[in-house]
């Protein structure tokens, strides 16, 4: 193939990458200016002057990394895209997961509780916000089943079970359930679980609970977990799996809602972006290497 032809073909790559390349470079410049401004403010603090650095302050008892993992880059000049949020992967700590356990499922007495299906409007009314993350990685789409949730409501009107699951996977069967990928028989994408009352399953981290590392995203502590998950078919004699794929989990509480992102066959960077987009509300999340 001629180099000119290859160059022409390269012109047809995913336009989101093309857009990202310009946003990323512009934002880094802006960030530099912002850090310079922050440094100037810090000097003023030392001099005893009042400053606006409260966003960078940390409270005693927090377990954030040394540097801020959250900056707002501002709006790139000449475009109307939303402000970008900048994260550094150096500030993200990942804990190894040995497995998951389902919390004990309660049985709800039909004499006291009703099973109700919430539609999109009900979910919005209860949670007070759209739970769909602002950032969805390329190639993933929302499940057609995302607009509803089966919940349990007491006869007195109290909400007993409020968990909402939102699926974002690469492909779906006709019934709306996510498809496995061809090369690796596992899902590709993530499920976002949200609840005000409490999540229905827990990660089992290898480290003791008080040693699990927490990352700080915009002041919200986020626990990231990783598991090298096996996939089948399994060898009938040795019981060895066909291989392993990456499984990441992000857990955090933000504005009184507990979130869990369970991601399969996704890069950690993408999982971080999804979590950061929920916390910041911004679609444009840039990873500063």
């Amino acid at each position: 193939m001629r180099k000119e032809e290859f160059c022409e073909v390269f012109g047809g790559i995913n336009e989101n990458y093309v857009k990202e390349a310009r946003t990323a470079s512009k934002s880094k410049k802006t960030l530099w200016v912002k850090w310079a401004a922050a440094a100037a403010c810090l000097t003023a603090v030392i001099a005893g002057a009042a400053t606006g650095l409260t966003n960078l302050d940390r409270q005693p008892g927090d377990t954030p990394p040394a540097s801020s993992a959250f900056e707002n880059s501002g709006r790139p000049q000449g475009t109307e895209s939303p402000a970008a949020v900048i994260l550094s992967m150096e500030d993200i700590a990942v804990n190894e997961i040995s497995g998951f356990v389902d919390a004990a499922r309660k049985w709800y007495d039909p004499a006291l509780y009703d099973s109700v299906v919430w539609d999109e409007e009900d979910i919005l009314g209860y949670y007070g916000k759209d739970l769909v993350p602002a950032y969805i990685p390329d190639g993933l789409t929302a499940s057609p089943q995302n607009g509803s949730a089966s919940v349990i409501i007491g006869k007195d009107g109290s909400v007993a079970l409020d968990t909402v699951w939102l699926n974002f996977y690469h492909d779906y069967y006709e019934d709306g359930s996510p498809k496995l990928t061809e090369e690796v028989s596992a899902l590709k994408g993530f499920v976002l679980t949200a609840s005000k009352i409490g999540l229905m399953n827990d990660c089992v981290y290898l480290l003791p609970e008080d040693e699990v590392k927490v990352s700080d995203i915009g002041g919200t502590p986020v626990t990231f977990g990783y598991r090298r998950a096996p996939y089948g078919p399994y060898d009938p004699e040795t019981h060895e799996p066909s291989g392993y794929f990456d499984m990441y989990v992000a857990e955090f509480e933000f504005e009184d809602i507990q979130y869990q992102i369970l991601a399969e066959q996704m890069e950690l960077e993408e999982v971080v972006k999804v979590a950061a987009s929920i916390i910041s509300g911004e679609e444009s999340i840039l990873i500063n290497e």
Binding site: I13, N14, Y17, E20, A21, R22, D138, G139, E269, I287
Partner: peptide, 25 residues
């Protein structure tokens, strides 16, 4: 193009952007 996108999708965003700045822009 699909394969190129597959390759680019596996890169960290910083390196991907550097590559695109050079060979797209």
């Amino acid at each position: 193009v699909r394969a190129m996108n597959g390759f680019l999708g596996r890169l960290p965003s910083g390196k991907r952007s550097i590559f695109i700045c050079r060979y797209w822009y």
